[in-house]
């Protein structure tokens, strides 16, 4: 195998925008992209469209799923039975990955991690936060989840069971957080405003 990273004579710092000098891997991205465009495998417009589509995938999509499940017991049952189909009902396509929704209750708290890489429900929530991909989170979430949760300000009573889900390339988990007390009669839209990205990863809970 050509060791691309070994061809690199010295390391450049990551460049935050495209105005500065190109780092090696940024140049590699440009080179690969231009060659693929020249070969007609895709066009520059395809790349722009793919970026726009990814930018449009945000935690607001997940919040719509959660708020629907909170207000519609039949939808919630469908979501827990088949997350992929329930997302599709709301116009959210999870592509080749299977979506599995796991429900938090008074006695059960779910936490999602990907220890081997960074599998994340990206088609629902968009791109993952940096810490989700970090060594510290990936290593510790499965061994000492309560300690990790505490770092996110989430302190769970001892009698609450913590269940950690290790994602795979094909199976992506979405936490269905507990609906906060005091939200009786709220509209779906207003409820969706309470649902944060972190609560759908399981590192925090939804609050008023």
């Amino acid at each position: 195998m050509t060791e691309i990273h070994h061809l690199h004579p010295h390391r450049h710092p990551a460049v935050p925008d495209d105005d500065g000098p190109l780092g090696y891997y940024q140049a590699l991205e440009v080179a690969v992209r231009e060659l693929l465009v020249e070969k007609g495998i895709f066009s520059g417009d395809d790349v722009r469209r793919a970026i726009e589509a990814m930018d449009a995938r945000t935690p607001a999509q997940g919040a719509r799923i959660v708020a629907r499940a909170w207000t519609n017991p039949a939808y919630k049952a469908r979501l827990l039975a088949d997350g992929t189909a329930a997302a599709r009902e709301l116009g959210i396509d999870t592509a080749a990955t299977r979506l599995i929704a796991v429900e938090n209750t008074r006695l059960l708290h779910n936490l999602v991690v990907c220890t081997l890489c960074s599998c994340y429900p990206r088609m629902v929530l968009g791109l993952p936060p940096d810490w989700y991909k970090s060594r510290a989170y990936r290593s510790r979430a499965v061994r000492e989840p309560r300690g990790v949760l505490r770092e996110f300000g989430t302190v769970l009573p001892e009698d609450v069971e913590v269940r950690v889900h290790d994602s795979t390339a094909d199976m992506r988990y979405l936490v269905l957080p507990e609906r906060p007390d005091g939200t009786e009669g709220w509209s779906e839209e207003r409820l969706a405003g309470l649902v944060t990205r972190d609560s759908m990863i399981g590192v925090t809970r939804c609050r008023l």
Binding site: T115, L116, D130, R135, R140, A141
Partner: peptide
Amino acid sequence: HDMGGLPAGPVDRRE
């Protein structure tokens, strides 16, 4: 890459 369960420091929550 198989780091699940290994000791590690606090989670850096900066994004």
